[in-house]
Design a binder for these strands. Structure first.
Lengths: 229, 229
DNA sequence: AATAAAAGTTGTTTTAAAACAATGTTGTAA
DNA sequence: TTACAACATTGTTTTAAAACAACTTTTATT
């Protein structure tokens, strides 16, 4: 982890919501002092229980958002890719993060002090509504996850996770960046069963597996499995 | 289900957020035309998949918010009591409800057209922030639920549900209003096991059970069970 | 290159909870 | 006041998935 202060939004290639809101407001860019941070794989970007001090935006790389459960068992809710908010679910109301985020590859984030954010959306209604929209979307996906985790068998769950990753990376062939254990955590499956299921699906000709590289061969069938298990 | 139109907020004893926002704005109360609806036990207040057309506020009674899952199996996320929003989780972004709500006793709700709501919070920043705050709180409780459902055993889960209900009704002795099946759905447990666990806890002297009336006798122990199962 | 550590794999055993089944109880509508 | 449905209870069986164990492969580290 290393960080740089004194960044200037004008030099940033990413024209994020915050930038746009600020530009619209006509305010000086000096009011926000964005901090850029670089993380290696497996480093915490934010930790469940710690206080929410900044709005965090993922600029580069990818990260997993997970809840830290009992006896070190985690459940990964989803993978975050650029460019989207990391701090979102805990942004309103809660003083502390109710989840953790870890980089799953080298990643870069940009963070803006929460007071500055508040000032910003106090004067910009659309900005707040945009935050809400993203927020609402997250919630919807979480509700779907609850059903998946509680009502599908492990075969259906792993199929779900693979389809999810394929959609996330917008390709039938992708490097999932996750270890077998982490893939398990995305589907609430033990590591051993995650391995077994990947092997099973491979032998059935539904996917190809080479290390962490997955290719979905028969998407139709995988979708069926996701439905009926 | 029966409803009344042409209600006047000035006659309403409940001075809700919407009322207050409107009053502050100085607008005429005639711009909102609240509809009051009465529901019997087990009637749908809103149905998963149907479109979000109104903001719904629970005025009287209580209701369960649940996700309709696979083969008619539901998971109840929480119980709603007055006075709070029902439509909240689906209020932003999503055009359709991603969950259902049913009355668990005779209940009364008040609903306001969503366009009116939008007009209202367009001119009232604090009102929107208040909505967000309530929203954030819901999300936090749902994240906790995910861990409970996936990582605790059924004994821990039922303990959780009983503690939750006791907190909700602000008493160690309460009528849970839920059938054994519904209590099961609140904890993702089969009806049979819900019965067995209640009997078990009763025999251990931790709770008293008379029909739907529950009394928590040993709260400390129940908390312990909720933790360790 | 050698060695340790982490990650992945496969077979076997255990177990928690659902499903099934049968029966009892209560509430409610004719 | 009977009768039928919904709800509740208890015992038994089945099963899906975790846990355990042993081993292999890959990846870092000295």
């Amino acid at each position: 982890m290393k960080f740089t202060k004194n960044n200037n939004c004008n030099d940033c290639t990413l024209k994020c919501d915050i930038y746009n809101a600020l530009k619209e407001s006509g305010e000086d860019f000096s009011i926000i002092k964005p901090i850029h941070v670089y993380y290696d794989r497996n480093e915490y970007i934010c930790k469940q229980g710690s206080s929410v001090t900044h709005a965090i935006y993922l600029v580069e790389g990818s990260a997993k958002l997970f809840i830290e459960g009992l006896n070190n068992r985690n459940i990964t809710l989803y993978i975050i890719t650029p460019d989207s908010y990391i701090g979102l679910l805990s942004f309103f109301e809660t003083p502390d993060y109710s989840y953790s985020v870890k980089a799953i590859e080298s990643s870069r984030i940009c963070m803006v002090d929460i007071d500055t954010m508040k000032k910003l959306y106090a004067g910009n209604h659309d900005f707040l509504l945009k935050l809400n929209k993203a927020f609402g979307k997250s919630v919807k996906s979480i509700l779907g996850k609850i059903i998946t985790l509680n009502q599908k068998n492990i075969r259906g769950r792993i199929a779900d996770s693979l389809l999810y990753l394929s959609e996330l990376y917008k390709s039938d062939s992708f490097n999932m960046l996750l270890s077998r254990k982490e893939l398990g955590e995305l589907s609430a499956i033990s590591e051993e069963n995650a391995v077994r299921l990947l092997t099973e699906l491979r032998k059935e000709g539904i996917i190809n597996v080479t290390g962490k590289n997955i290719t979905i061969v028969d998407k139709k069938l995988l979708r069926k499995i996701s439905e009926i298990g």
